[in-house]
Write a protein that binds this DNA or RNA. Sequence first.
DNA 1: TTGAAAGCGCTAACAC
DNA 2: GTGTTAGCGCTTTCAA
Lengths: 355, 355
Amino acid sequence: MARARISDVAAAAGVSVTTVSLVMNDVESRISEQTRRRVREAARAVGYAPSSVARGLRTQQTRTVGLISDQIATTPFAGRMLAGAQDAARENGHLVFLVDTGGNGAIERDAITALTSQQVDAMIYACMWHRVVEAPEGLPPATVFLDCRPAAGGFRSVVPDDRAGGYAATRELIRAGHRRIAYLDTDDGPIASNLRHEGYLEALAEAGIPVDPALHVTGATTAQGGRSAAEVLLDIPESRRPTAIFCFNDRMAVGAYTAAHHRGLEIPRDLSVIGYDDQQLVAAEQDPPLTTIALPHYEMGRWAMEVALGVREEGNDNATHQMECPVVRRDSVGPPPAQVAKPNRRRASYTERLP
Amino acid sequence: MARARISDVAAAAGVSVTTVSLVMNDVESRISEQTRRRVREAARAVGYAPSSVARGLRTQQTRTVGLISDQIATTPFAGRMLAGAQDAARENGHLVFLVDTGGNGAIERDAITALTSQQVDAMIYACMWHRVVEAPEGLPPATVFLDCRPAAGGFRSVVPDDRAGGYAATRELIRAGHRRIAYLDTDDGPIASNLRHEGYLEALAEAGIPVDPALHVTGATTAQGGRSAAEVLLDIPESRRPTAIFCFNDRMAVGAYTAAHHRGLEIPRDLSVIGYDDQQLVAAEQDPPLTTIALPHYEMGRWAMEVALGVREEGNDNATHQMECPVVRRDSVGPPPAQVAKPNRRRASYTERLP
DNA sequence: TTGAAAGCGCTAACAC
DNA sequence: GTGTTAGCGCTTTCAA
């Protein structure tokens, strides 16, 4: 059976289409309560669902948003970001078109064309990790960049505050009593790498801890990469060896765990470790559960959508919004082992961050 | 500046809108090559992008698909499934509306209404793990169920062949020489749990291996759950202790690793382990990398989309399509340790499955 | 080989 | 309080 049209409802209720339209859209109250009821009943009776397509054509507003992302498939981060964007879209009565380009330029161009043809009300351009990107041609100027920043500016964008995150991670270790703190960095070149390093240096400087270049090592952003880099650190003679390692991400932190275990070092008794990302199914499942810095993916997704839909006022059309990365305390950070003497057996107990 | 309309192109090219429409849609070749060129040039000149909304209203085909899923945020599986669906949609010129309901019934109902109003050409109802579900009201009959099966039937659906997967996993261990093979199951009650168990029993029976109830243990589907359950298995006196463990999923297998390591058992020398899911950032990153059974998420996503769009013919509108779960060989399966005597130091080398 | 015109289902300006 | 009608931008039938 074919879709019911507004005229079917009008006929069934014995009114005009105008009346039906007015009732369905809750416009003014110039319609009598009795008529409203009759219309609504008729609509239900004929199984009427208004056509968003016809409405979109008429009003030139589709109540849809386009979300272009480079990779949803290969990173498990995507979920939270999409969830935030989705929730905000739903709360504002919008549906989202999701297009995953896999980083392919041709697909990206086609996606922009297709979404433009669909006359989406707003567009979001998302990356799955913090990056600086060339803004592709054809994006509407109101596009919001999510977890990335357009190289030439000109768009609103939201990214994590990696510098503050690096600072917070290092502060966390300093506060636990550490002075020989390593930064297990990556050489894969993400923009976050430098930013977190800056935060690390800032926290060190603030605490009056001299920088030891030997404590800055690098590796690939994998468990294996983290393990190799951690081994370099643990090879340092004990007097100068780090008592705590701040890892670029959770995966590398897992590698640091492995390296430590292979030398009989127990975490956090002999070595404190802090990660970054708060990656689901990774950070919390380690033994001991990994203290880490969370990327505010959900919040960034929500922010981007709200700004894109215009429900959140953001003054500058050309500004990058930085979002805080909170510390998630678990059990991989404790006080440093007692100097020179026997290792200190006391084990700090940290509790999981409350929601 | 406002969108260019088809009439703008017509005016610019000095032809009628009919001609422009015909050219833009590559209909017949009744238009002279010269006119075609003129039209295309004019379209480019005025920056014309046809309105899918107007076209959708006219043709009653929107070239959009609705994909409703219960959870994209909380499982890292989603990505591959979405990627498969996306790719198939794109290849067929369709855009996908993604709605994540978080399992909330009210949101689900609203989503179905919204997608119906958008007049999507097809609909997919996806779960993030293999389940039997109550089909919600209002789904079009042509909806395809992805990674789940409607309890009452009546829809096409695609799910992983968990029974065959359990069989394959167990076969893999039998072929490596094991006879005392445990099934580290879950008591969280997913439908896959029983199916994989059936496959396990079938492989055992086929090989003439008697079933030892002590080798069937259960736990929560987490690393911690896997660890506790594995400890029960490893507490069994060595003569009857399993030499291989088939784990319900990769996370539980990680727990089995931990339990083994805490007893000084080396994998795969002293104990072989096989997982399920081939979960990214988990299976491959273990030490040693975990041999596992892959869930065909990408393929299922693609299958569902192709069937939904009608580009793949599937006879029965009421049939459940089962998809193979391939073995992914890594390094956690080897021959059983030599009986009674000293452990066999030989270590089997398996190579990663080629793409 | 090309064009005129109807109409997809809805909203909103205007008339009553 | 309610109804008539034009028109959103396109496709497609029919006529030339």
